[in-house]
């Protein structure tokens, strides 16, 4: 790729992104009143869902998801190690 072509492409790139951002920021200025009204929450104040249980589930889910992902990664590492050992094992002897 020639440097002139590269430069023009980068310039066009930057120009379009700034134009798009400018348009988006203009779009960001609220022309219409916000569509969703604030929710009426008074009806739910008396409701007695066990907040502690909800929070407990959230914490368990966090630990489960992170722990599960870490365990999955560890299993992948073990599988890689096994492959590496298999490769090292015959010490370069070509086998079918």
């Amino acid at each position: 790729m020639g440097s002139g072509r590269f430069r023009s492409r980068v310039l066009g790139f930057a120009a379009a992104i700034s134009l798009g951002t400018a348009g988006a920021v203009w779009a960001d200025a609220p022309a219409a009143p916000s569509v969703a009204p604030a929710r009426d929450l008074s009806a739910y104040k008396e409701e007695t869902l066990p907040g502690g249980a909800l929070a407990g589930i959230a914490y368990l889910l966090l630990l489960g998801l992170v722990g599960g992902y870490a365990a999955w990664t560890a299993k992948k590492v073990e599988a890689l190690q096994a492959q590496l050992d298999a490769l090292d094992g015959p010490a370069g002897d070509a086998k079918p």
Partner: peptide
């Protein structure tokens, strides 16, 4: 994606209580 799943599961649990 992992932390997005955490956000998407913990958020609704809270929202059910405080937004209904």
């Amino acid at each position: 994606l992992l932390f997005a799943l955490v956000v998407l599961t913990s958020g609704p649990l809270w929202a059910r209580k405080s937004w209904g």
